[in-house]
Design a protein around this nucleic acid. Structure first.
Lengths: 163, 163
DNA sequence: GATGAAATGGGATTGGG
DNA sequence: CCCAATCCCATTTCATC
């Protein structure tokens, strides 16, 4: 895992494409080298399929934290939401009902980084309190959510015989 | 959104590929029809990019719930974990430290379905209690987590100048 | 190991029925 | 909606650095 690998994976995430040509445009890495690198990343288990799902564990973002955020906002919630989304490592953010205002999932490079994360949360004016939970094991990640449903259920719930 | 659309999206999720040919093998839908359908789904905003990220909201799985699960397990936690993963709609499952044992994120077709979900949780022997939170708005979903990081941070944290 | 050039073949894409 | 023709681009190979 060197600089070029990281650039490549970041470009895939940013562009939302796996096209070697487009990745070349973005990264200036020669097309044949992109092939070469991608093959290695596949063998290393970092990239898992045609859709370039990235295994964050294998990548090195192997610390996962769930953070409940309690905020006191006078304006619209999106403003606080925007600030939260600006924090590095925040991979998901839910605005929720009930006592907690936001539930956040973050993927971090190491446990030391949790400190930085929480610090950034608390630095937001509207944030009153946070409540962090370490994840011991991510039994299922969010990739391709439809897998959790049987075809029958999906058909029953989503198909309406018309487009 | 009819049966074929659903089959197609399910096949994409299951196979982890967007290749029209492989999707044809799986679904028996003619290759050119797959194109036709995929284009429509793109225009409808259900499919968003080359990597076939699916917008669950646009699809109709527009109810999101975060469930904390407290369990009392004598055996290994994976056994309870497996049972949880078997429940339809569970898109993420974290085994966590602290009071709560599992944090689950589920995407459901409607709010009525929450009842079914919670019921299935409580039907698991080892599950003592659940604590559900409705999501009002999913400010960021989990797709392509690297986007949340700047290139600089990723390079600093993950690149080690060597493969 | 990385990269450029060059060839190929497979499959994505499109237009017409 | 789908067949069949088209064409593009991903992929591979090989030589060179």
């Amino acid at each position: 895992m060197d600089e070029r690998d990281v650039r490549l994976l970041k470009a895939i995430s940013d562009l939302g494409t796996g096209s070697p040509e487009r990745l070349h445009e973005e990264t200036d890495i020669p097309v044949s080298t992109i092939h070469y690198r991608l093959n290695n990343l596949r063998e290393a288990g970092v990239i898992t399929n045609d859709l370039y799902d990235i295994d964050l564990d294998a990548l090195g973002l192997d610390v996962t934290v769930v953070v409940e955020v309690l905020a006191d906002y006078s304006g619209p919630y999106d403003e606080v939401g925007e600030e939260i989304l600006g924090i590095e490592g925040v991979t998901q953010c839910f605005f929720t009902m009930g006592e907690t205002d936001f539930v956040v999932v973050a993927h971090l490079p190491d446990s030391d980084d949790v400190e930085r994360l929480i610090g950034e949360f608390e630095a937001i004016d509207e944030v009153d309190r946070t409540n962090s939970t370490f994840v011991i094991n991510e039994l299922r990640d969010a990739q391709r959510a439809l897998q959790s449903y049987s075809l029958d259920t999906l058909l029953e719930k989503l198909a309406d015989g018309d487009d």
